[in-house]
Write a protein that binds this DNA or RNA. Structure first.
Lengths: 232, 232
DNA sequence: GAGTGGTCTAGACCACCCG
DNA sequence: GGGTGGTCTAGACCACTCT
């Protein structure tokens, strides 16, 4: 019948009680021993169910104090899809266009974001992502050549810098910042929109250990771009 | 010394091998038996380490085929903080201002998003969140009174609708959409910015089971708002 | 002190799937 | 068929924290 794992049954049962309102924020959830008895399973199985619910943020566990329903998320997680996925997912033809790929010294703002004092030795890659005959995204990327010397040998005319970095350079953490801004003359030309059009800007800095690997500024015409959410 | 759990040691060791590039996408990761032997622990402990790494998306596990390093994430998760947290986190005074709270019939766009045919029976709550003396966010919210009759008795002048809903109404899923748009006259007035200013717009629809609970449209002056990222 | 969660072991059976 | 991961048990010890 039910070949769903027991720990999953326990999770589902508790989640149902929380989502239905039978258990509300602060209420005590049955302990591991109790659940083990209720579901006729071992304590470890009950423990796993509670641990996973805690990982998902639905409950809070404290020694001695037991497990209680967590305050509902003050934050939400959303997913930023890869450009290519996003475009092809809409059934539109995807194309990447390389606009520039050169050695250059990043400006002050970028240098600071990358926290490098070593001026120079950076690769600046600029490109556009097309969705059919419209510009979907414009990228300006800086790659730290001291950290990623292999970037010199990559051919960014066939693969976007974004994709190449994802596939070839490990990173330990990535920071994002999303903001809105009005297109200046340069951005308007690059995106083929009217100056003053609202743009969505995503800034991304990735690190490996203590070292900044790359900085990317991505611009979207506001009307084109959206982000879909996730659980939690 | 190290009272860190064994499964955590195993995870850290494997994560280090992946992030350092010693193991790259597609490479095989040692199996459970092997790790159990290497770390002198039980198979379950090794299993837990691998399972959690798989949950985090770093590896992919297949029966018989073993565990291999996953292709690096084509997507990224970012966190949307609660407004209040975000403002107070910056050390600025937070204040919520209720602008309107009335029964009304949502327009076509909202009705569709809420997927309700039942016109009417909705509560429309409009408010502003202040960060010091600047408008940080403007909310327009629709609450399905059939699903959430208790909203009639809530006092939205002291608690923001957002917060009240989080604390009092369970939900099973939440969808978000982020876009950029230029402020029209109304939005400019509400946010106290110049018309045409780029705004960040977050649209949020929450559900309980099959039923849409609430729809919220949140507007930010572009320069004020940013979102910080998360792991994975 | 006592009760809760956190971790761990040794052993077991099953499901899946590649060769 | 056999090796891999997926799940489960029974029992154990420890750490933390509330009373």
């Amino acid at each position: 019948m039910a070949d769903t794992p027991i720990y999953q049954l326990v999770k589902d049962a508790l989640r149902a009680r929380i989502e239905s309102g039978a258990l509300v924020t602060g209420d005590m959830v049955p302990g591991e021993e109790q659940l083990a008895a209720d579901f006729n399973c071992s304590r470890l199985t009950a423990h796993r169910a509670l641990r996973e619910l805690a990982d998902e943020g639905l409950v809070v566990r404290k020694r001695r104090a037991g497990t209680q329903v967590a305050a509902r998320g003050s934050g939400v997680l959303i997913r930023i899809p890869s450009v290519r996925e996003e475009i092809e997912g809409r059934g539109v033809a995807y194309r990447y266009e390389l606009l520039a790929c050169r050695h250059a010294v990043p400006g002050a703002a970028i240098s600071e974001a990358l926290s490098v004092d070593a001026k120079g030795r950076h690769l600046n890659v600029v490109g556009r992502h097309w969705a059919g005959n419209r510009v979907f995204q414009h990228d300006t990327r800086w790659i730290n050549l001291i950290q990623v010397p292999a970037a010199l040998e990559a051919d960014f005319s066939t693969v976007s810098a974004n994709q190449w970095l994802l596939e070839n350079v490990p990173s330990s953490s990535v920071d994002h910042e999303i903001s809105a801004l009005a297109a200046d003359a340069r951005a308007a030309t690059a995106l083929e929109v009217e100056p003053g059009t609202a743009l969505l800007r995503i800034e991304r800095v990735s690190h490996l250990g203590q070292n900044a690997i790359t900085h990317a500024a991505m611009l979207h015409p506001g009307a084109l771009f959206s982000l879909k959410s996730e659980r939690r």
